[in-house]
Design a protein around this nucleic acid. Sequence first.
DNA 1: ACCACAACCTGGCCGC
DNA 2: TGCGGCCAGGTTGTGG
Length: 291
Amino acid sequence: MPELPEVETIRSDLQREVVGSTITAVKLYWERVVAFPSAEDFVRGLTGRRIEDIGRRGKYLLFRLDSHDVLIAHLRMTGQLIHRRASDEMENQVRAVLELDDGSQLRFADMRKFGRLWLVPSELMVVGKLGPEPLAEEFTFEVFRERLRRRKGAIKPVLLDQSVIAGIGNIYADEALFAARIHPQTRVGDLTELQLQNLYQAVRAVLASGVENRGTTVDRYRDGLGRRGGFQEKLQVFRRAGQACPVCQGRIQRIVVGGRGTFICPSCQRLAVSSQKDEFDDPDPTQPWYH
DNA sequence: ACCACAACCTGGCCGC
DNA sequence: TGCGGCCAGGTTGTGG
């Protein structure tokens, strides 16, 4: 599941690999990979164009071209963008290939066919509704608090809402909430000032570490050269149900929040209940009176 | 504005 | 070994 750190890793790999190259041909093996414009116009608009720069907004990759059009890619769940020599063995489930003037290829592979490509005159057509970049300097605590303020409901679905903050997906949402010791079902309005500060720091730290470690390969994610990431070694809770919490040794649980699989340590991440239900229902296994 | 749910897809897993 | 059924999760769209 490519989220901000995975997409950023691919961006920096491809920046080094393909910026300055010219697209000599475009092959589509599954036309519906092109979300906009038509497959024909997409191929026509890319052929002969030089790649000037590669940017990123949230989970979107932005290839800026000398025509001032922007090629945009979203990998959704299983997409891969890999730079190879034309003579290298082809990946499975390749949906599109850009041939470059140095004899290399940029290959878009995607098992589940959810990923999409766009070719647009303005990137705002695709990424205009995204919230701020969480690792940008301008993303201060005040911005974070203000963005959350008008939202209601459980915190985890809010973190996953790309119009609130761009780039967080299921992996980093669970890791950030664990790092901040916040239960994913906590209502946004119930978060204390201290919890908001902890969550702000946790979101930034977890995403930055994800980038530092070149992303998380728990499934099909590969970087721009086809290599695995490293952050899966650092995961504290994600996909670790039944294993020991690294902090308290309690058992990590899988629950469902907002319809998504969610991993928590139930003793580190308590759901603050408004006094009606008492704490005796939910003994803390780390405390001596348990047993 | 919020929530729930379906749709898009296919490989992997489970139970029988 | 084989088959049906379910699950995974980013995003969009529908409907309450």
